[in-house]
């Protein structure tokens, strides 16, 4: 999460809008010069990023993304949009000072030069007494993590968009009337644990035992909701979901019909081979048929439907394409 994110708020004294930096505790109204403190429920301020794409534009962006995702242009032309829903997905933003300590016990390898009875020198490695280290830890942390299940939409971070765009104060009721606002499923306590885990340093090579205690001080916690469009395409009888970034139109996640493959060569070659064998001699033709059936059933199984589709279904659709 960038520390440069700012939100537009209105001064309760004079009503003027002004920029408020996300993560700050206080701001100053430039119009009436009143200092203002911003307080969220239970210490958590909620903001959201306004969407920059409307539904038609999101659909255009989704269709553009199809080519990049490898969807057959003929299939893409036949896709029809079924619906579209604007969703706001919550992210935790946590800034704090991590303090604590770490104790390590490391094994030590001692190298000794030894001289044998012939006067030859060699270096021998042996294990020395273990070394103990203690260090005090104090470092700032700026952590962001999804407060929802990110696998559902493919969105993992909001740093870039947040650094460029202004945040808005969250009005859950008003926003819910025009979009689906997701509430966080991951609590603040878990976000704190994750932030602490992310701030832990890797253990040096040769560490035998480690004890550490880390805590967060002076934390600034906020929930920031990010806009995405959930669209659906239909192709034939199937519905295909697509998630499009509501800020930059990037396709985050989607499933599309696979490319269509026309199989002409293989069945035609088999038919020609069998016919020419019959022209040579009927017995050779029968043998060729038996050989072909033996090969086919060993490869595709003993299904007559498979055999029929081998000759009849010359147009084949590959598996759906998953993106994100």
């Amino acid at each position: 999460m960038s520390s440069g994110m700012s939100a537009v708020i209105s001064c309760p004294q004079c009503g003027s809008p002004f920029d408020f930096r996300e993560g700050s505790r206080n701001g100053l109204c430039p119009s009436c010069r009143t200092s203002l403190a911003v307080c969220g429920e239970a210490g958590v301020a909620r903001f959201y990023l306004e969407e920059r794409l409307d539904l038609p534009r999101a659909r255009v962006e989704a269709r553009k993304s199809l080519a990049a995702a490898g969807v057959d242009p003929r299939v893409a032309e036949k896709l029809r949009f079924e619906g579209g829903e604007l969703c706001f997905l919550p992210f935790w933003s946590l800034r704090a000072l991590v303090t604590g300590w770490r104790w390590l016990e490391k094994e030590v390898v001692v190298r000794e030069e030894v001289v044998d009875e012939n006067g030859c020198k060699s270096v021998v490695e042996r294990r020395g007494p273990n070394e103990q280290h203690f260090e005090t830890i104090a470092s700032p942390i700026d952590y962001s993590s999804p407060a929802f299940d990110p696998t559902a939409c493919g969105l993992r971070g909001i740093a870039l968009a947040g650094a460029v765009l202004s945040l808005k104060l969250m009005d859950h009721e008003a926003l819910s009337q025009c979009a689906t606002v997701f509430d966080p499923v991951k609590g603040a306590a878990l976000a704190r644990q994750e932030a602490l885990a992310a701030s832990k340093k890797s253990r040096p090579v040769g560490t035998l035992r480690c004890m550490e205690r880390l805590v967060l001080c002076g934390e600034r916690l906020a929930l920031i909701s990010y806009p995405v469009w959930r669209l659906t395409f239909s192709a034939g009888e199937r519905i295909y979901p697509v998630v499009v970034d509501g800020i930059n139109g990037r396709m985050l996640k989607g499933r599309f019909p696979g490319p269509v493959v026309v199989r002409l060569w293989q069945p035609m070659a088999v038919i020609l081979l069998l016919l020419s064998a019959y022209f040579v001699h009927p017995a050779a033709g029968s043998g060729a048929v038996m050989l072909f059936l033996g090969w086919f059933f060993s490869v595709h199984g003993t299904s007559l439907a498979e055999l029929a589709s081998f000759f009849a279904l010359l147009v084949e659709r590959k598996e759906d394409i998953e993106h994100g």
């Binding site: 001064c11 309760p12 004294q13 206080n26 911003v38 307080c39 301020a45 104060l169 929930l223």
Partner: peptide, 21 residues
């Protein structure tokens, strides 16, 4: 999810209190 924006005014004299971020 309401956010409260509180003007920082001295409870004694009512003057605006300068505050850093």
């Amino acid at each position: 999810s309401h956010i409260r924006i509180i003007p920082l005014l001295c409870p004694e004299c009512g003057n605006s209190l300068p505050a850093g971020e």
